[in-house]
């Protein structure tokens, strides 16, 4: 049996000529590198460092793991870098991998890489100031249907992201003329929250974690969340499904490898990451960041990304950003 494995791995090493050091039953053979396609401090960087910490502290992966920050181009710089690496390098990703390409801002897309896993997700929320006369998601959408320019909507940090598109999807269902909506684009979620608290915008779409503390303090009202079921800590907030919109809209983060990884390398990561997501340390990190477990292994991820690609294609057309 051992001999067979050895032979198989030798064969693999030979065939996987793009990555001469990779293959082989002893993968990984050198230090591992996680690419965060952003500067230290952001969500991608946090994800990469959280993985590094858990895999390392819990002794799941024996080889040292280094974090490489490659910010720029909404992830493109980091993913371009990954493309020419071998299987010892992985990069964090999100739906921007798909939407950048659909918006014509990048040539790279999900099928240029090897899907490894989806790790966690956040959910999206639609928020209005506390003294707004809008009480329900339906009120908001009715107003917008009558006159799409009647309300000023805040979003960050760019059109075509999940915050924006989750709103588009809901509005579309109500028959709102989406391309005519007035979006004010802010640099960060914090800026949107400030504008909302100061009544400079009428409503905003943001991730739940950005809205939750303000909601608890009674500073804002959350009209609906994009999860399948009501969220912990927000038991009074309905989901879009309850509001008559058949959607669940995750704002996920995942991880992927360079193109052409071998079966064995993929299997290695499937095993290690599925082990990682079960640890208490990982669960604690998720909870601190208000993320929800959303683990999908490599084959599920592959399928998921294909579905997502189709969904985003439709949504971007509806939003008016692409034709």
């Amino acid at each position: 049996m051992k001999k067979f494995l050895l032979a198989a791995s030798l064969l693999l090493t030979l065939t996987a000529c793009t990555s001469p050091n990779a293959g082989g039953s002893s993968f990984p053979v050198k230090n591992i590198e996680f690419v965060a396609p952003a500067s230290p401090g952001g969500g991608w960087d946090t994800t990469a460092r959280a993985m590094q910490k858990t895999l390392d502290d819990e002794g799941i992966v024996k080889k040292p793991i280094n974090i490489v920050n490659k910010p720029g181009g909404s992830g493109e710089v980091g993913w371009k870098y990954l493309k020419n690496k071998d299987a010892h390098t992985l990069a964090v990703n999100s739906s921007l991998l798909i939407t950048n390409n659909l918006l014509g801002q990048s040539d790279l897309t999900y099928d240029d890489f090897t899907p490894i896993a989806i790790l966690a997700t956040e959910w999206e929320a639609v928020v209005v100031p506390k003294d707004s006369d809008i009480e329900k998601a339906e009120d908001l959408m009715t107003k917008l249907k009558k006159d799409p320019k009647s309300l000023k909507l805040g979003v960050a940090p760019g059109l075509g992201n999940d915050d924006h598109l989750s709103f588009v999807q809901a509005a579309k269902t109500y028959g709102v003329e989406v391309p005519k909506l007035d979006f004010l684009v802010y640099e960060s979620g914090g800026d949107v929250a400030t504008a909302l608290l100061g009544n400079h915008i009428d409503a905003a779409t943001m991730s739940v974690s950005e809205a939750k503390e303000q909601y608890k303090a009674g500073k804002v009202k959350i009209l609906a969340v994009s999860s399948k079921e009501r969220l912990e800590g927000l038991e009074k907030v309905p989901t879009w499904k309850e509001e008559g919109v058949d959607m669940s809209f995750p704002h996920w983060r995942g991880i992927m490898g360079p193109p052409d990884m071998s079966e064995e390398e993929i299997a290695f990561w499937d095993e290690k990451i599925s082990e990682m997501v079960k640890t208490e340390a990982w669960k604690e990190i998720l909870q601190n960041n208000e993320w929800e477990a959303y683990y999908k292994n490599s084959s599920e991820t592959k399928k998921f990304l294909q579905e997502q690609n189709e969904m985003y294609k439709d949504l971007l057309n509806d939003s008016g950003l692409t034709e």
Binding site: T46, E213, K216, K219, N288, N289
Partner: peptide, 14 residues
């Protein structure tokens, strides 16, 4: 903000 969130503090109005 990112760093204290990692430490389990939730800065907010409260």
């Amino acid at each position: 903000l990112g760093a204290v969130i990692m430490l389990g503090v939730k800065p907010g109005p409260l």
